[in-house]
Amino acid sequence: MRVILQRSGYASVKVDGETTGSIDKGYVLLVGVTHDDTEKDADYIAKKVSGLRLWEDDDGKMNKAIDEVGGTILSVSQFTLYGDVKKGRRPSFIEAARPEQAEPLWNYFNEALRSQGLHVETGIFGAMMDVQLTNDGPVTIIVESK
């Protein structure tokens, strides 16, 4: 499992012009699932994300976790995180899990985040989405379970 985490001051996702999720201060998570990912991978990343200290303390050092600053999560499924561009000009997505495997694992991952006490908003799996965000910092971190 691969997650691109962006610290955000505001973010939203729309499908067909309708907002399906929005957050103020928090993390936007672009979530990719590959063939051999399991619930163990999702649990690992959920725990890692909830514990990361990416918010400033009173001394201006990244020393606070998301729950300490009242942050929330916007989770967006994104199979293109497993796009391979080594050959040719068109990406291959063969490493991305098929939707029947990826969607339940993405849903499980979102529930694992909620079980860490986090509020989670989402996009819609498999939909064409418009994602807007203000990257705070900017802070962008790649989190992988392998």
Score class of each variant (00 low, 15 high):
residue 38 T to C: 02
residue 114 R to G: 08
residue 66 I to S: 01
residue 100 E to S: 11
residue 47 K to E: 13
residue 71 G to M: 03
residue 78 Q to L: 10
residue 118 L to S: 06
residue 74 L to V: 12
residue 68 E to D: 15
residue 137 G to L: 12
residue 37 D to E: 02
residue 78 Q to F: 06
residue 72 T to D: 15
residue 139 V to C: 09
residue 49 V to M: 04
residue 42 A to I: 02
residue 22 S to R: 12
residue 91 P to D: 11
residue 112 A to E: 14
residue 4 I to Q: 13
residue 43 D to K: 13
residue 24 D to H: 15
residue 57 D to N: 13
residue 81 L to T: 03
residue 3 V to W: 07
residue 145 S to R: 01
residue 61 K to I: 00
residue 41 D to P: 09
residue 145 S to Q: 03
residue 132 Q to H: 15
residue 107 N to P: 03
residue 35 H to I: 05
residue 63 N to L: 04
residue 54 L to S: 00
residue 69 V to H: 08
residue 80 T to K: 10
residue 16 D to Q: 11
residue 101 Q to C: 11
residue 125 F to C: 07
residue 10 Y to L: 13
residue 84 D to W: 08
residue 21 G to N: 08
residue 124 I to C: 10
residue 65 A to L: 04
residue 30 L to K: 13
residue 145 S to M: 06
residue 32 G to M: 01
residue 123 G to M: 03
residue 34 T to E: 14
residue 99 P to E: 00
residue 50 S to P: 06
residue 22 S to A: 15
residue 85 V to D: 13
residue 54 L to R: 00
residue 132 Q to W: 09
residue 7 R to D: 07
residue 109 F to Y: 12
residue 98 R to N: 06
residue 10 Y to S: 14
residue 89 R to H: 10
residue 52 L to Q: 01
residue 20 T to S: 08
residue 27 Y to Q: 03
residue 44 Y to S: 06
residue 52 L to W: 04
residue 123 G to L: 04
residue 14 K to M: 12
residue 9 G to D: 09
residue 63 N to H: 04
residue 26 G to V: 07
residue 48 K to Q: 11
residue 89 R to Q: 08
residue 85 V to S: 14
residue 3 V to P: 02
residue 96 A to R: 00
residue 130 D to Q: 15
residue 60 G to Q: 07
residue 88 G to E: 01
residue 129 M to F: 03
residue 20 T to I: 09
residue 144 E to H: 10
residue 122 T to R: 05
residue 132 Q to Y: 13
residue 1 M to L: 11
residue 47 K to M: 05
residue 44 Y to R: 10
residue 112 A to W: 06
residue 87 K to P: 09
residue 22 S to P: 08
residue 40 K to Q: 13
residue 2 R to E: 07
residue 84 D to N: 15
residue 48 K to F: 06
residue 92 S to I: 10
residue 26 G to A: 05
residue 89 R to M: 05
residue 73 I to S: 00
residue 70 G to D: 04
residue 57 D to T: 05
residue 123 G to K: 01
residue 51 G to H: 05
residue 52 L to N: 01
residue 36 D to A: 10
residue 120 V to M: 02
residue 59 D to H: 11
residue 62 M to S: 03
residue 130 D to G: 11
residue 61 K to W: 05
residue 18 E to N: 12
residue 12 S to P: 07
residue 16 D to S: 11
residue 140 T to P: 01
residue 17 G to K: 15
residue 50 S to K: 09
residue 22 S to C: 14
residue 64 K to Y: 03
residue 36 D to E: 14
residue 100 E to T: 01
